[in-house]
Nucleic acid binder design. Sequence first.
DNA 1: GCCAACGTTGGC
DNA 2: GCCAACGTTGGC
Length: 154
Amino acid sequence: MAKRYWLLKSEPDVFSIDDLKKKKVIPWDGVRNYTARNFMRDGIKKGDGILIYHSSCAVPGVAGLAEAASDGVPDPTQFDPKSKYFDAKALPNAPRWFLVKVAYKKTARRLIPLSLIKDMRGLESMVLLRQGRLSVQPVSPSEWDLITRLEGSW
DNA sequence: GCCAACGTTGGC
DNA sequence: GCCAACGTTGGC
């Protein structure tokens, strides 16, 4: 399977690209949306490219690059009663939620704001622009190239 | 299976 | 803080 590309949203007040840089590799846990879950479980493979997107903040946009450090595996927080992500309906032999490990790659020298993404030719059909509220989403190779080769941003 | 009510996301 | 756009839940 060829390498694929994804965009993961995070609120920088909660977890930012700087936090990822410090931690280096983290389990991207707590995703509790079935569409996002399906991408985590079936879509993302180790080695895939990831855009880290800052949402719900002063200047939302692409803040950095990461790489999938694992395929999808069951998210252990669903089984932990002390976790805010605990799900009483999830069973160890039938996990409901999945995560991938995410490895830090790079911080944007200048964040690529949503306002610019909206204006860039070739990004019109990004899931980011078409579906407002999806925290794990696919990015096409051409979208990836346009964003990761944007002059002055990296 | 439908759909109203409710909750969440996320830009502005 | 507002509100649009969804997603989820639960009664029927």
